[in-house]
């Protein structure tokens, strides 16, 4: 009888110890996971504004947005329009893309007619759509909002919502 009780006690104590250790271990893992998350200052990284009124057709401008290069191209009339991805400001067509290859993250270069990625030979057309090589998807359009002739990266406007919806 006493032996039985003793065994029950040992079992209970063992279970309690196990649960405490599991909870403690869980907290420890969670803490370690959180320690590697981006810092608040990084998350709250600001917005980037781009003035487009001074751009001529065929001009490309590159800005930094949350540590990533964003390319803005003012299309010429010869460049094919892309109704799903073009950003139209006062009748002029622009394309806005995060200039990072969707294959493995190199930075493609603008050749005058397309974006070419040196790493594994990927190609994207003037709208940022992948046309050749390993890149599996078009370049990503960053969240933006149009304010007059300015493109504000980091805020979401209706034009961005439209592009996002077209993709989904």
């Amino acid at each position: 009888m006493a032996d039985c009780k003793r065994r029950a006690f040992v079992k209970g104590a063992g279970a309690a110890l196990g649960v405490t250790a599991a909870v403690g271990g869980g907290f420890a893992l969670y803490g370690m996971k959180r320690a590697w998350d981006p810092l608040p200052s990084v998350v709250a990284a600001g917005v980037t504004e781009v003035e487009t009124s001074s751009m001529d057709q065929g001009d490309v401008g590159q800005v930094e947005y949350r540590g990533k290069p964003v390319v803005i191209l003012k299309k010429t009339d010869e460049m094919p329009a892309n109704e799903e991805r073009d950003v139209v400001i006062n009748g002029e067509r622009f394309t806005v893309n995060i200039l990072i290859c969707t294959h493995l993250g190199c930075i493609p270069a603008w050749t005058g007619e397309m974006f070419k990625c040196a790493c594994h030979g990927g190609e994207f057309d003037s709208s940022g759509v992948n046309t050749f090589g390993p890149p599996p998807t078009p370049m990503v359009v960053p969240p933006f909002m149009i304010e007059g002739t300015k493109i504000v990266l980091g805020k979401e406007g209706p034009e961005y919502a439209k592009i996002k919806a077209a993709k989904a």
């Binding site: 981006p38 990084v42 990533k68």
Partner: peptide, 13 residues
């Protein structure tokens, strides 16, 4: 990827 980098891009963290 963001977690491993601690940022949206490879950076100080």
């Amino acid at each position: 990827v963001i977690w491993i980098r601690g940022n949206y891009v490879v950076e100080d963290a």
